Simulated scan of single mutants.
Amino acid sequence: MQRRALIAGTAAALAVGTARAQEGFPARPVTLVVAFPPGGQADVVGRPVAAAFERIWRIAVPILNRPGAAGEIGNAAVARAAPDGYTLLMALSSMALLPEAARVNGRTPAYEPDQLAPIALFSADPTVLVVPAASHIRSLEDFVTEVRTRPGQVSYSSAGNYSALHVPMAQLAQAAQLDMLHVPFQGGGPALTALLGGQVNCMASGPGPIAPHIRSGALRPLATWGRTRLAGFEDVPTLIEKGYPDCEFYIWVGLFAPTGTPAAVIDRVRESSRLVAADSEFRKAMAASGNTLDFRDGDAFAQFYAEDAARLVRVVRALGKIE
């Protein structure tokens, strides 16, 4: 009887403690790390997420851009951060493949995916192949012809080796047997700036960062990596429908916390993330930036993440070592 009472009392105390932890969070600013410079997909989605969290929590949620090594530096920083919920990561899909890329290249990974716990997915869009509007390349067919005519000379920018902007272009190069010149930068923002500045000939990008430049007439979309045509880009064919069935890639943006963060805190952030997804200002910001809201949390996001990560690891192994 005494033992039962002790167990019941312990359970009740734990429940109260969990509730208090959830109610008390956050009590100070929460840093949202973006592992890329400003202007890339994670940053474009992360800023309105942070702004919505601030409205919900009435606590500052500063964005900390920690670029480098295709996102590896920022991802690793959050993986090593105190698991208390006060350091979160707004990650790209490449987060799942970078440790495998390190192993393929004979390096010890800076972090492992299981050091980061998935909380919520905010967007998942296929990448889009774009060229400057002034380019004589007007279609995917023109693009393939151009690359084959000038092997090794048509250049594309990316956020770094094995990044979410590099992998889809590598997929296309494999599928269409193309020889292109890869020019890696420290993030999607600088990669896009290089394209707009005429330093490279093309790039693959999430729709958010390039949408304003397509609307302004600065860039021309040629194809997307989706299974179906992308909303807002209905006139742009998919690579699959153009005869490249293996060219399917999604650049997603999701929220993660260091593994070991208390369940009550994770629950609090997850519940707040649902409120973010329903927030009218956040929705307006997503629409204005050209990003499709695709909110998933809990088991739905965990399953999506696990399946996508397995596919991306296979792609990295097929790419092999990059000298």
Rank of each mutant, 00 (worst) to 15 (best):
L192K: 00
R268M: 10
A35D: 02
P190N: 10
L239Y: 06
Q303C: 05
A51F: 10
L312N: 10
A15T: 15
P151K: 12
P245Q: 11
G85V: 08
P212D: 05
S139D: 15
V33T: 06
A264S: 14
A191T: 07
R227T: 12
A263N: 11
V154I: 12
L129G: 05
P221A: 06
V78R: 05
R317M: 07
T145Y: 12
Y111D: 03
M95Q: 02
A159W: 00
T261F: 10
D125H: 12
A318Y: 05
L196P: 08
A19N: 09
A110N: 13
Q41W: 00
P38W: 00
V276E: 05
G187P: 00
G198C: 02
A285W: 00
T228P: 01
N201A: 11
A173H: 09
L129M: 02
E307W: 14
L239W: 03
G40I: 01
A76W: 04
P221Y: 01
P113I: 08
L319C: 08
V236D: 00
V130R: 04
L181F: 02
L219S: 07
Y305M: 09
G206N: 08
V313L: 11
P207W: 01
S205V: 04
A318N: 13
L196V: 07
P209G: 10
E323V: 00
Y244W: 15
V265E: 06
T108N: 10
T228Y: 01
G152V: 11
G198Y: 09
P26L: 07
V144L: 06
G68D: 04
E271S: 13
A211K: 09
R274W: 04
